[in-house]
Structure formats: C-alpha cells, structure tokens
Design a protein around this nucleic acid. Sequence first.
DNA 1: ATTCTTTTTTTCGAGGCTCGAAAAAAAGAG
DNA 2: CTCTTTTTTTCGAGCCTCGAAAAAAAGAAT
Lengths: 415, 415
Amino acid sequence: MTAAVRHDDLRRRNRALVIAAIRRAGQPSRTDIARTTGLSHSTISAISADLIAEGVLAQAKGAEASSLKRGRPQIAIGINPEAAAILTVVLSLNSLSASLIDYSGNLVAEDHRRFSTLTASRANLMAETAAAVRRLLNHRGLAGRPVLRIVMAVQGITDSRSRALLWSPITMHSDIPFADALEEVAGIPVTIENDCSMIAMSLRWRNPERYRDDFIAILLSHGIGMGLMLKGSLFSGTHSSGGEFGHMIHQPEGALCRCGRRGCVEAYAGNYAIWRNARTGDENAPPAADISDADMASLAAEARRRDGPERRAFEKAGRALGYGLGNLFALIDPAPVCFVGHGASAFDLIEPSLRAAIAQTAGGQHSDSITFDTETNEMPLIREGCAVRALTFVDQEIFAPGNPAQQRLYGEMIA
Amino acid sequence: MTAAVRHDDLRRRNRALVIAAIRRAGQPSRTDIARTTGLSHSTISAISADLIAEGVLAQAKGAEASSLKRGRPQIAIGINPEAAAILTVVLSLNSLSASLIDYSGNLVAEDHRRFSTLTASRANLMAETAAAVRRLLNHRGLAGRPVLRIVMAVQGITDSRSRALLWSPITMHSDIPFADALEEVAGIPVTIENDCSMIAMSLRWRNPERYRDDFIAILLSHGIGMGLMLKGSLFSGTHSSGGEFGHMIHQPEGALCRCGRRGCVEAYAGNYAIWRNARTGDENAPPAADISDADMASLAAEARRRDGPERRAFEKAGRALGYGLGNLFALIDPAPVCFVGHGASAFDLIEPSLRAAIAQTAGGQHSDSITFDTETNEMPLIREGCAVRALTFVDQEIFAPGNPAQQRLYGEMIA
DNA sequence: ATTCTTTTTTTCGAGGCTCGAAAAAAAGAG
DNA sequence: CTCTTTTTTTCGAGCCTCGAAAAAAAGAAT
C-alpha cells in the first residue's frame, strides 16, 4: 500500500520533473520540455514561469545559436547557476579533496590536502574535513550563492541513513559521525556515502544509454568495492551501506583477507592479494598496508612479459572476481559491469580467467554476451557522483519541496 | 526522472489505495479507511460511493456486531465477493492443482490431478494445464462472476515478463509458453511466476509485522529455491526470474549439482545432496531423481538418533546454506529468513552449522540476532501467494485503471 | 515594405480532484 | 422526548492540468 497522494504533491512532482528534464537536457526550450516530460505546454509554461520568478531557472538571453527555421524562435531555458551551490567532499587514503560546485554543476573552487588518514585520530579526521568545508564555505567565488547541501564520499561502510562512517580501510577508527559533525559546521544537510555508490551515480549520469536501471560498478584497488544500481535506484542494504561484494566468500576457509575473515573475493583480487600471490605465494601472509600504483603497474608489466607467478596471481584475481560476479548474477541476472580504478588497467590480465569462472556459474549462461567496461581513474567519477547526488537533493527538496519549511529555509538563506 | 503525473492518476491511485486498505482490513468503516490511508473523509466518501455503485465494494447490511458506543454506528464496508473471480494454478512435480477464488479471496472450487510431469510432452503439459483451467472456468459456483486473472506458479525459472517457463526441474522441456497458451484458453491475462516468489508474497500477506519490506523465503526441497523481497517489492532479475540462490557457487569445482555445474549450494543442501552424502559419501554421484518426504524424514530421524554420516550430511547442508546466506547478506544486509518446505522440518539438524558458517562471512557480523522461521508445508503458501498477486492485479488494473480500455473490458464481461 | 506562414509561447476557461467546514444522520444517554 | 456523541455526506473553495485559442516573433513571399 503506497502513501496517499495529496493534491499538492502533483505540482511538487511536476516541478521536480521539469527541473530534472532541464538538468539533463542543458538548455532546452519549453517545447522540448513538454515533449520529454509528457506534460502539456500550458503546464510547462506555468511551472517554468514560477521557477524563473523564483530564480531557480534562467532564460538564456540573446546569444541564441539562431534558428534558421521559420516561426517564433525557441527560448532556451537553463538551470540558473546563481541559484545555489553544493559541496562535495571525497576522503580517501591519505587524501582529502573538497569541491564547491554551482547549481548548474560547474566547478567553482577546489581544495585538496594530503594527510595521513591511517595515523590520524578520530578528532583529527573530523577536524581536517571540517576545515576543508569551512575554507570552501568562505570562498569568495561563492558570490552570495547559498550552499545548500554537502555530500561526502568515503571508501568503506556507512550506515543506511548516511550519517556515519561505520568502518573504513583508511582509518582504524569506526563509527565516525561525519554527517553530524559537518552539519554543525555548515548548518546544512550532509550525507556520507560509499565511494562506489557515487561511482555508480556518475556512470549513470554520464552514460545513461549503457548504465540505466541495472548495472554494477566494481572498484579494483587495494580492496574491492561495489556500487550497485537495481531497478533504477542505488542499492544499499537496509542497515548499512551493504554491497560488500569484496567480502563475499569465494573459497570457504581460503586466503586470509584484510578484514580478518578467510576466502573473501578481496583476498584474491585486491591489490594486496595479487601482490602477495605473485611475490610470496603464501595466501596466509598478512596483507601489506599499501602498494603504490607504480608497483602494481610493474607487476602487471611483468605478468604480460612472461608466464610466471605474476601472471598466475592476476589469473587468480580474475577467477575470484568471476565467481563472485557469477554468484551475484545468479541472484540479480547479468547486467553491464564497469571496472573502475587503477586495477582496471590490468583488466586484460584478469579477463580470461574471469570469463572462464563466470561460465562455471548459474549466472554465466550467456557469459559471452556480458560486456565489461573499464575506467582507470576513479576520483573524477566519485566527485561527479557526489555532485549529481547533492544537486538532485537540492532540486527535489528545496526547489520542489513537499514540506514548506524547506523552502522557507531557502528564503532565509538568500535574503 | 519519473513519469509525468497526470491529473487523473490521482483518482486512480487513490481508488487503488482505498481498495487495498479494505482488502487488508476486512470490513472497515469509512472512518477507519480515512485513518489508514491518510485521505480526508470527503474523499473516502466519494471514492467508496463510486466503488459501491460499480459493484466493487459492498456495504455490510445489518448483522453488525453492534457498537455499544454512542453516536452514529459505523457502516462496515467490504470487498464484494461477487465482483469478480480469479484463478490460481500450481504446477509442481507430478501434480497440478488449480483453484477458483472469489474477489474477496474465498475459495470457490478446487481441481487437483496427479500426472507424471517428468515424462509428459510439452503439448501434454500445456494441455493438462489448459484442461484444469477450462474445468474451473465452467464451474457453476462461478455464478456469473467474471474471471479476470490467472496466476500460475511453477518451480523453476520464468522469464522476466512472466510469460514462459524457461527451465524447471519438473520437466525436461524448456521455454514453455504457459501464459500465451492459457490466455488463448481463458481470454484473460495470465502470468506465470516462480513458486518461491509466491511464497514470499504469501508470507508478507500473512505476517506483515515480520515480513514487510525486506525478507527472504527459502524453499528446502529436492532443490533449493528462493523468494526475495527487497524494499517492499518482489525481487526478480531483469531478464529471468532471477533469485537462483540454490545455484550460487558454494565451493568452486565442488560437488556435482543437478544443474550440471559444480559446487552449487543445492549440491550440498538439496534433498538429493543430503541423501547422497549420507548414503554414498560420494559428492560426484549422479543425483537421485526424487526422494520421498518419508525417506528424508527417516534420514533425519537417524541423524538425530546417532552421530554418523546422516548427521554429517545435514551439517554439510547447513554449512552450504550458511555460506550462501552469508554471501547474500554481504550484498543486501541481514533480513528475516523463513525456511519453507518439508526440508524445514529438519532445521534443528541444519541450524548449528548454518549459524557457524554465517558467522564466517561478512554478512554474519550480528549472526546471533538473525532469526529464522520455519514453515513445513509450502503448498498453501504458494496458492495463497498466487491469489494475493492475482487479486492485486485486478484491484489495480481493472478497478483502478490507468487506461480506460481495461475498465471497458470489465464492462463487457459483466454485461 | 508589407503581408503571409510557421512555430513557439502564453492565456483562458473547463473539468477534476482533494480538502475543511458545516450539515445531516443515526444511534445511546439522560 | 431532548441532549450528546460519532459517523457520514454535502458543499464550496482552491489547486492543478489540459485543450483550444490567442498572441508573439520570427522568416518567406509578394
């Protein structure tokens, strides 16, 4: 039983629809919007007039690429970049990077620092993050725009309400309430998300042809992460952020994993596992703390050069990933997969054994037709995913609010 | 971007909401409905007046359990059983059982036959099913009610559009277009669903306290099946019915499974696997075709009586199920689990090793708090799930249609 | 230069829907 | 027989969307 549909929901939802259509199309005319949304011209006219009056949208004045066609020229209409701004924060191993982004999605300012996340105290981690946020909030490029939302991405497990970092490989501390801490600093809503989920958001935004309703983003890095889009919405578990693909058990009582358990996919396919298999051959050796991309690249080069333990290690990684994906496909059916991160640059070494393993599983019945994509640099994807998520929040909650209190808040902030 | 919200959708959705509220509550008053739906009294009054005029609902006349309270007595309002009927068909190993059910969910007639599904030809399977449907369509208990929907449940994999049985252990044939065949016979929409999905529907209907938005139904039988409810809707894959929990790989290159692959959960936890482990100790022995419930019961009795290969076999089953569930929990977070079917009567033998295995996995961090439920007879659940699904379809598509053509069809059928 | 065409955008009135308030209905309590 | 209390219905206000018609703003044609 779905919730009751009130009368005013109609306007709210259609406003959100119009904003989303414009965000996707860039600079559409009213006629374009009517076509993509399916709403009538009159409705589009009314809604866009309201949104322009509120400063959310702006008409592109002059400078039209001319029409060359007869008839009244179309008036391009776009997101008003002055309407608001949002902030993204990406915390990763020994690196903190924050960005200020205007309401139309353009980068206004960046702030990047390196510091040792592994040795930092809880308070230190929160303080560094808060300081980065504070610096950007005071940035003069803001020019009076209200900053309405912060989305932070971290590697690790967050709680389902996106308030705290429950566990992460970048620090030994757990249950760090980043959202509360940053809300206190900024006075606006903050959520903290899993980095791979943000990668999935970004893939969907960049290439909705390929990544629409169901697809999988897998981060190949020191550990293995996953972002899962199911039926058009980001899948995260009910309690935590879920999607712990890297810690599905590939081999009961198998190789020692960084998480302390045995036989996880990550214990075969994470950088440390590949390194360990290639260099020591001992699956029970304690995982190395960090392995540079350069080291991994030379390992891959060696594996390509000759048939030896290096090549074997990448094959094992492919096998573990293949069985893991096969098990996932047994549950959710095959879907497009994108391998992201520096590890994806060695995908040629991984792919044969990965495909062979998938073919052994229930999900691998059409394993030939499964396509894989790679994207070796994850950072831009993570940031873009955060931006997309934050802007969508603002679109829906502030500019098409179900609850008048939220819009009142915006009124106060721009006053 | 969601679909445009048209104005008439509002009425349609609120009509569906009212029907659902009444179906759930049984015989509520208008005031009750207003409370549970959140709609205003005026709206409920208008919608229920319409629905009564259309014959969808009926006021309980007289026979009120009296009020004992002051004030105008409440008028109980209920689903009109005369408004329509639906048909459920459950095809399982060597058994076909169909039921005629009125619009308020009461059983009108049943039709049950035994025949050998394993040896039957494709045409034979479809003909038997069609004959059962035809018999019930001509049943005099129908008394002029239009039969508006058929939902059929089968063990196995169906396509995602619920039109055909792609693969099933009860027959050697594949790609059997049951939905098309029955639609030709009955002239009304037919869908074919996985039996475990219907079990999940039924559990949710029976006990929404425990089984609401996220839960898992696992059928322990000759094979292993799963019905998965995620975020309040039945999860099935994008291409096929998905949810092939029994064929997740527990042990790469492990025991021989009925499906021809190796190491599937089912190859350790299906009846044939438990039997094989207990009696031959050879994991590669070809699976027995069928093992009676009585034989499995005596195997369980023996396992309870003494520590021997029988007990070991049940332990192995628990271990495979535990790792499988743990891997599932790694992806979707722990959720309530119900073990269904005759195999659940040996759950006491399975539970210890199952819990021990879960504790080894990423999803098992709070393995103590995970609760399991058992239900040894699956047939009533499957039938009830089909009925719930069919009635919901009728509620939404016929009596609260988005498309006037559907309602016109009903008009013709009752004329 | 002025008058057609064509296309986009806005305006206007009709028709629906939900809601709150008020009225009506239908009992028991005094 | 009149007062309370509770449920249900009625009625008017306020929105919202839509289609049709009007207005606007160009290029094309004369």
